[in-house]
Amino acid sequence: MKKYSNLFQLSFFLTPALVIIIVFYLLPLVLTVYMSFTPIRNWNTERYLSQFIGSYNYYRIYHMVKYDPIFRQVMINTIIFVLITLIVNVFGGLLISLATYFINEKSSSTLRLVWLLPRMSPIAVYSLVWYYFFHGSEIGTLNSLLLKLGIIDKPIVLGQGVIPWGPWSIIVFINGLVGVSFGMIVFSSALSHIPRELVIAARVDGATNWSISRKILIPMIRWHILYVFTWQLLSLITSYAHTFLLIEWGLVNRDYGTTLSLYVFLTAFGRGEQDQGLAAAAATILAIIGTVLGFLTLKILKFERMIAKPRGDI
């Protein structure tokens, strides 16, 4: 009886989440893998769904990897982009949430709001904002600022001229800002749950902000940090939307701004036709890479040990 009631209660709590995971993750994943073996394109499921073309889509990707003259650069871009942005995201988010933690609430919430803007902006508007900001001529905000201050006497063509770090820094900056706000929200809400008594007690003992952060705050939100780290790693591998328009508009050099996911996006959906079969194959590969990377991260960071036994199970 007791066992039955426990099972009932457990399913009450877990069923919705499991259903949604099965329906919107596992099932689509199976469908994606299936579609990667079909020539499906232009969303024409009626026509292509029952056609089977074997591993053609994978072969196509393999062929491009091997023969495309820009592919090597795309790989380098991806590695640089993911690593640096990841660091910017996690540490930036942590820094801002810690810093705002120590200042009064009013200014902290305003500041946090500013850092939230990148996340809330529609992608096209966000790209437009930075397009003008980094534009490589006098019309660019950054260039005109530096010109006015007399730091430079000729506009810097950051996205196209300073190769490779110019385009890299722009895409890292733009994606980093979006990620920083993500980390910031997670960390801030986690920090707000730490009993203030702990902090006050430490402060009375003469602890500095730095040592409070290091000894009390960071350890208490460590799983949040880990979480943000892993999540960002995986999502950076698949993100392309914020870079796409900037390359399209000529702000960022295409060879040095294109990352793996953007490369796939452009090949599958670039223009004219929409090749969902190819996209599905790429998604399958990405899923595998993502799983392996995610798994490795969890292992390296000894994630399992951090999962505590639940309290209070009867």
């Binding site: 099932l27 999540w231 995986l234 996006f265 998604a283 969890l298």
Partner: peptide, 27 residues
């Protein structure tokens, strides 16, 4: 399976919307 579920949830973000969208559209 609790530990597994926790890890699994974390891993699910390995394929965010963009990658899954083709499958979600078919559904």
């Amino acid at each position: 399976g609790r530990k597994f579920l926790l890890m699994f949830l974390l891993m699910l973000h390995a394929f965010p919307g963009v990658a899954l969208i083709v499958g979600v559209y078919l559904l």
